[in-house]
């Protein structure tokens, strides 16, 4: 069921973006892609294909060597740090152990872009924090020190931080890699819901192509720093396409119950 997404407003975009490291290694080459509001886009590809680099460029952490990265049509570098953070939230692959904060305190830090250095936590901030805790199911862990949580619990805490930030774009680098299966689905369902209901633009690097196909509206595939596919899941979930992206022989079957395309390694 391919949806026509071209009427949704474009939010983040890369135009012929290229990234070269200081030592001259090209990590991304000639990437042009648009991410729209109300869309959940999954970035897939082999290890080292440039997924994290692309996400960091969208988050303004890496400057493109050539080409442009834009937010609402304006170059990403033009925004001040706080203004940008109000629109775009970024979750790194390894966000760290959260220093010595409790879960509550860490999530509260996600409100920084709104209250800035001089503001206090207002009602709106507190509501946002509560909502983030509720949505990620961390109610029972609020007073625990983040560094004492399990890997998966800590990842949910970091996701809650990005939710508390209330940005209209979420850039998530492997947000569910440490989670158990039920929590993986839980988070993806949450992201799907946020997309539909709140019209967020969500870009997530995902390793599991099946989860990507099930939940994403759009899939961007990178290989060796180049963009090789930018299409809805139905187009991507074809044997030859998957062989091109992952270098593996895969069979695509419809899910017995809900009909979503499912890829199985043919090994």
């Amino acid at each position: 069921m391919a949806m026509d997404l071209s009427d949704r407003p474009a939010v983040l975009g890369m135009q012929k973006a290229r990234f070269e490291t200081a030592r001259g290694v090209t990590l991304l080459d000639n990437i042009s892609v648009t991410f729209r509001a109300g869309c959940l886009t999954a970035i897939v590809g082999h290890n080292g294909s440039g997924k994290s680099t692309a996400l960091k460029m969208l988050a303004g952490l890496n400057k493109p060597t050539s080409g442009a990265v834009t937010l609402d049509g304006n170059d990403v570098g033009r925004f001040s740090a706080r203004e940008f953070a109000k629109s775009v939230a970024y979750l790194a692959q390894d966000p760290g152990h959260g220093a010595d904060y409790t879960v509550e305190e860490l999530i509260a830090l996600g409100r920084y872009p709104w209250h800035g250095p001089f503001g206090r936590l207002r009602e709106r901030d507190k509501q946002s924090i509560e909502r983030a805790i509720l949505l990620t199911g961390l109610e029972a862990l609020r007073k625990r020190a983040v560094s004492t949580l399990s890997g998966g619990e800590r990842q949910r805490a970091w996701i809650a931080v990005t939710l508390a930030q209330q940005a209209s774009c979420l850039l998530l680098d492997e947000p569910i890699s440490a989670l158990d299966l039920s929590h993986q689905y839980e988070i993806l369902l949450l992201l799907e819901q946020l997309c539909k209901q709140d019209g967020l633009c969500i870009v997530a690097v995902l390793h599991d192509i099946n989860l990507a196909a099930r939940f994403a509206d759009h899939i961007v595939a990178l290989k060796g720093g180049k963009l090789i596919a930018d299409a809805p899941p139905a187009t991507i979930m074809q044997s030859d396409m998957l062989r091109d992206i992952f270098g593996m022989d895969m069979l695509v079957q419809p899910h017995p119950t809900n009909g979503h395309p499912f890829a199985l390694a043919n090994v």
């Binding site: 988050a59 952490l61 001040s80 740090a81 706080r82 203004e83 940008f84 953070a85 109000k86 939230a89 970024y90 979750l91 790194a92 966000p95 760290g96 959260g98 220093a99 010595d100 830090l109 996600g110 920084y112 872009p113 800035g116 250095p117 001089f118 930030q165």
Partner: peptide
């Protein structure tokens, strides 16, 4: 005012920057 920044620094430069601190 500085307290806000100083609270964020221990989280590392990437997180600090992505939360909107220059």
């Amino acid at each position: 005012a500085f307290a806000r920044w100083l609270n964020l620094f221990p989280l590392g430069p990437v997180t600090t920057k992505s939360l909107g601190v220059d």
